[in-house]
Structures are given as C-alpha cells and as structure tokens.
Write a protein that binds this DNA or RNA. Structure first.
Lengths: 142, 142
DNA sequence: TATTGTTATACTCTATAACTATA
DNA sequence: TATAGTTATAGAGTATAACAATA
C-alpha cells in the first residue's frame, strides 16, 4: 500500500517513457524504415516460431486492424508470409522469410541493447517494482 | 546493476501498460469524447495555471503538431483560450475556461483514481523502482 | 451461432518541412 | 539568425462496424 506522496505522475511517467523508447528504437532502426507496430511484430517473431495473427495481436498489444496493415506492409516487403493454419482454417500462421529473420535479429538486438543499458543503472528490486506497478496498472485498467 | 534475468520484456510491459491505461481512461471519460492528447492536456491544466504551448508540449510528451490540433479541438469546444504572452509575443498562454475547468477536474479525478487503485496494491519501494526504471529508459533513449 | 481475420470509413497521431511573427 | 507556434502534406494508428470463411 502506497500513500499519496508516491502517486504523482505514474501515468505520465509511463507515457513519457513509452514515447521516448519508441522514438529511440525508431531512430536506431531508421535504416530499416519500420513503423512502430512493425518493430513489435518483428521482435515477437525473432525467435523463428510461427504464430497466428491472434497470438501476435496479444503479444504486441496491437489492434486487429493495425496488425492487418502491419502484416500487409511486411508481406509486401517480403519479410513474412501468411499460411492457412491446417488445424483451424480460419487462422493464418505467420512466419518470417530469411530476409525477415535478418531484420528481426536487428530489431531484437536494438530492443535488447536499449533494455540492457537502462537496466545497468538500476537494481533488481527496481525492476521488480517496475513490473509490479505496470502489472497493477494493467489489472485495474482491465 | 541488473543481470540478464530481469530484462525480459521491460519495453513490452511498458507499452502494454500504456495501452491499457490510455484505453481505460478513454472508456471512463467516454462521455467527454476526448482524444488521448486532450486527456493529457486537460490533466496538465487542471491546476488552473496558465501555460505556454511549449510548456504543455513538454508536460504532455506531445509533438507540436499534435498539440496544435488538440488545442484547436478544445478551443472550438470552448474549453480553453490562447492569449499572446506579453513577456514574449511569439508565445501563447493557454488557460481553461470555466467549462474547461469542469472537464479538467473530471479528467484529473479519473487519472488520480486509476493511479490510486493501482498504487494500493504495491509498495513504496515498487513505486520508487518504477520511477527509477522509467527514468533510466528515458535517459538512455535521449 | 461464435470466432478468425480482413475490409471500409472516419478521425486522430506523427514526421517533416515550410512559414509567420517575434526575439 | 534563432525561436514559438502554426500550417500543409502524407503515411500510419484507432474505433467501429460490416463481412467472408470456418468452426
């Protein structure tokens, strides 16, 4: 339980940090010319596993319509392919092409580098607190 | 200093929490029919102080062009007025009208309520850690 | 009848650059 | 010459609803 003093600007800090990190990633990856959802999408697929569109929507916190247009962009670019899921023919399984895998590795490295440098300046307890509060915000927002 | 184990998904958690809180605030304030930047703007002006457009841009982490259109919307609606700053005639001082103040109080109450309920489930140390990590992310993103 | 994913529409956010007025 | 803010343009995100195919 937290008293009033700690509450100032939690939501504002959250938004500012989100803006800053998205901007920084976009700048570091400017050579790849990716929109914000594209970055999340490639990072999610970087492990090489195939995923349904629904799974990607959940993993990237992206709306279905946004996801469709992001998938279209990366599809046109030859970074991924959509194949009907034989287990459920309403679904598509999304997988990266070799060029998509190369882009995904670059994206994952940039994300990881940014996190690594931020985490180098804080404690384990800070990280735990961060996750506790973001989880709490998602919980009360649900 | 934090080891590898804590690093998983800090940026993803940040984005998911931001999406969730913005969505929750939008839903709670749906009667006011406000766009996301409008909410930040009104919350920043809720204390009744006048602020320049530049100060509002910094306070709300909003881009100048986004801010102009948000100010235009709230201006048309009669929620705020822009007056030339006598100290620097290039700047505008933005202030709320009485109806804008009423809307701002509603917004501030919703933001505060959401934060209060989230903070009720975590410790002071968690909040400190949250601020430490969001600050670190903004620092390395700068 | 419910679910997966796409499409359509209208409004909003963003980056970029050009522009006005003032400093 | 530099800064505060607006305007213009084009690409992208969002909510909402309608839709096809499949379950």
């Amino acid at each position: 339980m937290v008293t009033e003093s700690g509450s100032l600007g939690v939501i504002l800090a959250l938004q500012q940090a989100t803006h800053a990190t998205l901007h920084a990633l976009g700048a570091r990856l400017s050579r790849l010319d990716l929109a914000p959802p594209d970055i999340n999408l490639l990072a999610s697929l970087a492990d090489g596993e195939r995923r349904t569109v629904g799974a990607l929507a959940a993993a990237t916190a992206t709306k279905p319509t946004t996801l469709t247009s992001a998938l279209d962009r990366l599809d046109r670019r030859g970074y991924l392919v959509r194949a009907v899921d034989p287990a459920d023919r309403r679904s598509f399984l999304v997988s990266l092409t070799p060029s998509g895998q190369a882009a995904a590795r670059t994206v994952a490295a940039a994300v990881h580098d940014l996190e690594r440098r931020a985490l180098a300046t804080v404690t384990e307890a800070d990280v735990a607190g961060f996750h506790a509060l973001t989880s709490a915000l998602m919980e009360v927002s649900g």
